[in-house]
Simulated scan of single mutants.
Amino acid sequence: MRTIKLILALPVVALLYIGCSKDHNYDNYDAPNSGISGKLIDAETGDSLELRLNAGTVRYRQIDARYPAPVDYDIPLRSNGSFSATNMFAGTYTFVPRDGAFKYPDVNPVNVELRPNEIASVNFKVIPYYRISASINSNASAAANNVTFTYTINKSAANTTDILQEVIFMVGKYARLDETVSGERSQAGLINNWIVTPRATATTTPPILPADPVAGFTGVQRTFTIPLWADTGLPPGTYYFRVGVRTVAVGRYNYSKVIKATIN
């Protein structure tokens, strides 16, 4: 009887082996082998954007009749406006940039066909709310307490509604510099940044027109001197500096390029 039971069990074991064998993946999808990469470009100047890491996304969804309720996913933006995603399934997708300190004039998502074993390339033309140029004085000295930003904020031609809310000045030890990553300001553990609100005051240089403080603040070269270098907790040396601006409507900053300067 034991011999008969063993013989009857053998076909069952064989079927289980075949069903689990790696060579018989009849019920599995192919692994994702496609992807996308690209960049957000200033539509008016052709330059790369100056953003904070992850401060904005490219949103996508797959278009497939088998899935009538597709789910949205986001690809985070790098600080230069570039983005990439791999391990995606081949197919048709829509992509649209969003949630950053920029306008996307086209509004409509872009349809992209992702092919197996290929990385598609797509660039988006967007318009930053503001563009900032900045520099640090060459004779900057910790002892003289004269570390000064010279900067100009320009409003993009397409920005007709978003109002400038604040300007932020930053200094830090590393080239990655934004309002969340600055230096080691000793007072109350604050990071090394200083915020200026555009408004008409007696100390504004040059004076802002009281009737239109934002219009008076942009398009004009201005200066800002760090009030007391000793408060930064940083000894004389080489550091990184940056200027950022934020609009009323969007809680994201546009930035100048990072400036490397030596403080004597």
Score class of each variant (00 low, 15 high):
residue 49 L to V: 06
residue 204 T to H: 07
residue 166 E to A: 14
residue 200 A to L: 00
residue 103 K to H: 08
residue 204 T to A: 14
residue 193 N to L: 08
residue 140 A to M: 07
residue 263 I to C: 00
residue 62 Q to Y: 06
residue 69 A to N: 15
residue 49 L to H: 02
residue 87 N to A: 14
residue 92 T to I: 15
residue 252 R to G: 09
residue 158 A to Y: 07
residue 208 I to E: 00
residue 203 T to C: 07
residue 133 S to W: 07
residue 11 P to M: 09
residue 196 V to I: 12
residue 36 I to E: 01
residue 91 G to L: 08
residue 144 A to V: 04
residue 128 P to N: 04
residue 27 D to P: 02
residue 169 F to A: 02
residue 92 T to K: 14
residue 234 L to T: 02
residue 149 F to Q: 02
residue 136 I to V: 08
residue 36 I to H: 05
residue 64 D to V: 09
residue 68 P to S: 07
residue 58 V to Q: 06
residue 189 G to Y: 10
residue 244 G to S: 05
residue 50 E to N: 12
residue 121 S to L: 15
residue 112 V to P: 05
residue 54 N to S: 09
residue 100 G to Y: 05
residue 72 D to L: 12
residue 55 A to F: 02
residue 54 N to E: 05
residue 194 W to K: 00
residue 32 P to Y: 07
residue 256 S to D: 00
residue 157 A to Y: 03
residue 97 P to A: 13
residue 137 N to L: 03
residue 106 D to S: 14
residue 106 D to W: 03
residue 247 T to R: 04
residue 260 K to C: 05
residue 68 P to D: 11
residue 204 T to W: 06
residue 257 K to S: 11
residue 144 A to I: 01
residue 41 I to C: 08
residue 186 S to N: 12
residue 134 A to Y: 01
residue 115 R to N: 14
residue 217 F to R: 00
residue 125 K to T: 07
residue 259 I to T: 03
residue 158 A to Q: 12
residue 117 N to Q: 14
residue 183 G to Q: 03
residue 204 T to L: 04
residue 205 T to L: 12
residue 126 V to W: 04
residue 211 A to T: 15
residue 86 T to K: 07
residue 222 R to G: 01
residue 35 G to Y: 03
residue 260 K to T: 10
residue 126 V to F: 07
residue 39 K to G: 08
residue 150 T to V: 00
residue 9 A to C: 13
residue 144 A to R: 15
residue 165 Q to L: 11
residue 32 P to S: 04
residue 248 V to D: 09
residue 109 P to I: 10
residue 130 Y to A: 06
residue 153 I to N: 02
residue 18 I to D: 04
residue 59 R to K: 09
residue 27 D to Y: 11
residue 229 W to V: 07
residue 77 L to I: 11
residue 244 G to P: 01
residue 122 V to M: 10
residue 225 T to W: 01
residue 145 N to Q: 08
residue 206 P to W: 11
residue 256 S to N: 05
residue 228 L to Y: 13
residue 256 S to C: 02
residue 127 I to V: 15
residue 24 H to K: 08
residue 2 R to N: 15
residue 195 I to V: 13
